[in-house]
């Protein structure tokens, strides 16, 4: 059995993300979604309901609005924002674990994912063109494939490492060369299986290679830039380090300046702190 087959098999073996998220994700793909339906789905899960209410009242999500019910949260924050909150709550337990193949200690993939989500949202606000909530969720999930692929990366680390060192391939290119798939592709397959909206699946699939798309998709570009910026800031580089490449001329497409990017970086830390307080299991952010 090739690594590719083994990895495919472990995707199937992975427990589904909270059924609540899958159910809402399916609804998000439809234009005629009713508030009542979403309220019902979420309130079925008391843990998630409590988490969502706590986050909805946090400074990052508007703060001090006294949101006391899921219904109020949807009315005040909108269904898309609520989906962000549901994904945050559901995904925490999956990506706060140690990710051994990449040498990420407990909580570090979580910090990195939150950073990329927050920076993606800031980039979307800055650039326009895309829905900030979509890129927030895509940013949060962009590296979820690492959870699946990590143990295979661990087995073949020396090979991947040497290949990237010798040939100048980025880490995920070397990963694909050795394992047959990379963490981006695995992540997108996982999200597909969980019925996530196609824009989010695409952003995860191409977050290291937006140039491979025939036609550029701004959501993909934004998550890509946010990922690079987060690694530069030192939030989440593991054993793979900073061995990744910024896609050519992507900055010119959006008239991104160095100053704007540094400004986004300097403001992202506060937001991470605000959001991080709700997930203190690993000493907080």
């Amino acid at each position: 059995m090739t690594y590719r087959d083994l990895i495919r098999k472990s995707i199937k073996g992975l427990p589904a993300i909270s059924p609540v998220v899958s159910d809402i994700a399916k609804l998000m793909n439809r234009p005629d979604v009713s508030i009542e339906k979403i309220v019902k789905i979420i309130e079925y899960d008391p843990g998630m309901t409590a988490n969502i209410l706590r986050m909805a009242n946090s400074p990052y999500f508007g703060g001090a609005q006294n949101i006391n019910s899921i219904r109020q949260a949807i009315v005040r924050l909108g269904t898309k924002r609520l989906f962000d909150l549901a994904v945050l709550s559901a995904v925490y337990g999956i990506i706060d674990r140690p990710i051994n193949g990449y040498n990420l200690p407990p909580g570090e993939l979580w910090h990195h994912s939150v950073a990329v989500a927050i920076i993606s949202r800031k980039l979307a606000d800055h650039i326009g063109l895309v829905d900030p909530d979509t890129v927030f969720t895509a940013g949060l999930l962009h590296d979820i494939g690492k959870v699946v692929i990590a143990r295979f990366v661990e087995e073949e680390f020396l090979k991947i490492d040497a290949l990237s060192d010798k040939t100048g391939l980025s880490f995920e290119e070397a990963e694909k060369e050795v394992l047959g798939v990379d963490h981006a592709e695995v992540g997108s397959e996982l999200l597909n299986a969980w019925d996530f909206p196609p824009r989010i699946v695409m952003a995860v699939r191409f977050h290291h290679a937006p140039q491979d798309l025939d036609r550029s998709i701004p959501e993909v570009d934004i998550v890509h830039i946010a990922d690079m910026l987060s690694l530069i800031m030192g939030i989440g580089p593991g054993r793979d380090g900073l061995r990744y490449k910024l896609s050519t001329s992507i900055d010119k497409k959006y008239f991104l300046s160095r100053l704007a990017l540094e400004n986004i970086a300097s403001n992202a830390l506060d937001d991470m702190q605000n959001l991080g307080e709700f997930f203190p299991a690993n000493g907080g952010i």
Binding site: G234, G241, L242, K245, S249, L256, E262
Partner: peptide, 16 residues
């Protein structure tokens, strides 16, 4: 210590 860079950044960041 520090000042690492990603493999290629088209001169955009060069923060390190």
């Amino acid at each position: 210590a520090g000042c690492a860079e990603i493999l290629s950044d088209n001169g955009l960041f060069k923060i390190g």
